[in-house]
Design a protein around this nucleic acid. Structure first.
Length: 683
DNA sequence: ATGCCGACTTAGTATTCTTTAG
DNA sequence: CTAAAGAATACTAAGTCGGCAT
């Protein structure tokens, strides 16, 4: 069960995370006050926001009374708990003034698929296979991990540049060749002949009919331009408006239906076959240790699905061939055989300063690369993940100083210094991303250093309203009260500028990060996100980082259903109440006009029933509120990328919650490195 | 300094698997 | 059992940031 966000007002203080609050209060008291300013402000904010505190709650299913379950983790726990005094992390937790964001998804910037049909069938028989796999994997993992922790200590820090000594793998897997279906589309009402290559691209477009892309001009234009290159100048097809892809779309629907109709055996056979084909690509051997490979499948051809208003959406992403691919492998280890007869790799390298196993150039953005890496569960990834969190923890020791430092510079005469101070403040306070420059041919999004004057509105006396599209064209809309010097500075930065001009004209991410590095070795803008997220470690995190998801298609109906059910229960309850009244007045239930009634309910029974129903209603209201309030919050991203897993592990150990109630299998593997932390661990 | 290349992390969405409701 | 809901995983786009050449 994932921790659930609960933002309802007035629900506060007594949650499972109350220990965290306590800690933070304490630290504030203990702090000496030289940096009173930012802190005081923070405190204020925190307090004022406290009413909307969110908290984690571990939801249990009725079925899982897992407190008593024995998990290895839990056992390991006990002794440790007693040992660890839990004390002491003296100062910590300056709560990152997470102002509640009003993050809105502008429908226009999202071309979400509204892919209507969704049906799944699950075969019980597949259970066998899966569970076997699970067991097998667990076994492997145990072996690997025990070896790993040693290997990890021995391994040179990532600083040295050498990432591995030996590396073996089997290369990459290519998607199957295109199988023509022969269904003719119509042009100007007439069926047209297409070569398989032409048909392939037409089909890519046809099957996207019920996504929002299909009606976007940019998408259509890009698609049509690329398709016409394949059709050739002399082809009868000249105008998009005369194209009718319906026949192909319908073929596609039939295919889907057929697939759905397959028997479980057929499906299983298909899966087994797939598993067999993929088997050899699943693993690499790094320094003698078997490690899972991440994305060994080469991306299949398709129409580019850029996010937001991406100028290249709809462009044909051409098929990648062996000749596009560079392989990286240990010297002296056998080069993976090229799986496509008659073709060969572009290049084979032996570079042990990098971790990729293969790469190719992105056909959409020729200057970009697509890499094949090891899976997140690998030692290599785990190690750097751990380093990331260690760096964020180190920031704890510098954060006070850093805040004092930038507060001082809010009024600097040096314009560069001043801008850096304000930018750092925003990165710290609002978890803004650094904001690198972007090319013309990308979606127009911004981060801190690339904020435009139109993205910030100064609201007297001292509020700033932010409204911009950030990463993935997710809208960031937030109004924050800032310290007066910050407000004045921003106003000044914007003064006399035109739309499209940078607020921070004097700086960029390089200067910003260079400055941060002077304050703490290795410090960059993104560390603040990790730091603040891990320090906060509760549901607020998903909000401060603006991780979003589309409101699910079923959200509205879900809410309606809940309301319906609640109403229904209320009616039931009222009915029972009325009956109770009668019963109390001494009427036998049987005396009712409704003589057919068989059940004789005593007042006690009725009361029990009523309170049972009321509990149900209450539960549903809570569910309803949670559903509504978390509909755009994507907690998963925080969980995977920002929250130091050791915090969670330690918490689980302290509270004897099996870790697998919090982390899924994959994520558990990814965080293997964090599992043996003691319950006393503090970020 | 700046620009570009390169490698790696972070991110939302699509797809698949699992669980639950009916 | 089936279908729908929900969780997990797969996929790949979109960021960050370091380093080297200019």
């Amino acid at each position: 069960m994932a921790p659930t966000v609960c933002l309802s007002d007035g629900d506060d203080e007594d949650g499972p995370i109350s220990f965290k609050r306590t800690a933070s209060v304490k630290s504030e008291q203990e702090d000496d006050s030289e940096d009173e300013k930012p802190l005081a402000m923070r405190t204020t904010r925190l307090t004022s926001n406290a009413s909307s505190t969110s908290r984690n709650s571990i939801k249990r299913r009725p079925g899982d009374s897992n407190t008593g379950t024995s998990s290895p983790l839990k056992k390991a726990k006990h002794s440790a708990i007693e040992r660890e005094p839990k004390a002491a992390d003296a100062h910590d937790n300056k709560i990152p003034l997470a102002p509640r964001l009003t993050s809105v998804k502008p429908s226009k910037t999202k071309p979400p698929a509204k892919n209507a049909t969704k049906n799944k069938k699950k075969s019980p028989s597949s259970f066998t296979k899966d569970s076997q796999k699970g067991v097998e994997m667990k076994a492997k993992k145990t072996v690997r991990n025990s070896r790993l922790s040693k290997a990890m200590k021995v391994r040179q820090g990532s600083g040295s540049g050498k990432k591995w000594s030996t590396l073996e793998h089997n290369g990459v897997m290519f998607p199957p060749p295109y199988m023509p279906h022969g269904v003719k589309m119509l042009y100007n009402g007439q069926p047209v002949d297409l070569t398989p290559e032409q048909e392939e691209v037409a089909t890519m477009f046809a099957v996207m009919r019920d996504t929002e892309y299909a009606s976007k001009e940019t998408f259509i234009n890009n698609f049509f331009t690329d398709w016409r290159k394949i059709l050739g100048k002399t082809h009868i097809i000249k105008k998009f408006e005369l194209c009718d892809f319906t026949t192909i779309y319908e073929w596609h629907l039939r295919e889907k239906e057929n697939k759905k109709q397959m028997t479980t055996e057929e499906k299983k056979a298909l899966r087994d076959e797939k598993g067999k084909r993929e088997e050899k690509y699943l693993w690499a051997i790094v320094d003698g240790v078997k490690e899972k490979v991440g994305n060994f499948r080469v991306e299949p051809p398709g129409l580019f699905r850029g996010r937001g208003e991406h100028p290249k959406m709809g462009r044909l992403k051409r098929r990648i061939r062996p000749n596009d691919i560079t392989i990286n492998i240990g010297k002296g280890t056998p080069v993976p055989v090229c799986p496509i007869p008659g073709e060969s790799w572009k290049e084979v390298k032996h570079d042990n300063t990098v971790t990729w196993l293969a790469f190719w150039n992105d056909p959409i953005n020729q200057k970009d690369f697509k890499y094949v890496f090891l899976a997140a569960s690998s030692s290599l990834k785990g190690q750097s993940d751990k380093e990331k969190y260690e760096k964020a923890r180190k920031l704890k020791d510098h954060i006070d100083n850093i805040r004092v430092n930038y507060t001082k510079d809010f009024r600097s005469k040096d314009q560069v210094k001043k801008q850096i101070a304000v930018a750092t403040y925003l990165v710290d306070k609002l978890a803004l991303r650094a904001g690198n420059e972007k090319d013309e041919d990308e979606a127009d999004t911004v981060g801190c250093c690339t904020l435009k004057v139109e993205n910030v509105t100064c609201l007297p006396p001292n509020k700033l309203q932010f409204d911009f599209l950030g990463k993935d064209s997710i809208r960031y809309l937030n109004t924050v009260e800032v310290e007066l010097p910050v407000y004045e500075a921003v106003k000044e930065f914007c003064a006399g500028k035109n739309k499209g001009d940078n607020v921070f004209a004097e700086i960029d991410t390089i200067k910003l990060n260079a400055h941060l590095k002077e304050l703490m070795p290795g410090l960059t803008a993104k560390v603040f996100r990790t730091y603040n997220a891990s320090v906060t470690l509760d549901a607020m995190v998903a909000i401060i980082c603006n991780h979003q998801r589309a409101v699910s298609k079923s959200h509205d109906s879900q809410m309606a259903k809940l309301n319906e059910k609640i109403d229904e229960l209320k009616v039931q309850r009222d009915g029972l109440k009325a009956e109770l009244e009668k019963a109390k007045k001494g009427k036998r239930p049987g005396d009712d006009k409704d003589g057919s009634r068989k059940k004789k309910l005593t007042p006690e029974m009725l009361e029990n029933k009523i309170s049972g129903i009321e509990a149900k209603i209450e539960g549903m209201v809570i569910t309803k509120n949670n559903t509504e309030e978390s509909k755009t919050v994507a907690l998963g991203t925080s969980k995977i990328n920002y929250l130091d897993p050791r915090i969670t592990v330690a918490w689980c150990k302290t509270h004897e919650i099996p870790i697998n109630k919090i982390f899924s299998k994959t994520i558990l593997e990814k965080f293997g490195w964090a599992m043996d932390v003691g319950p006393g661990f503090r970020f």
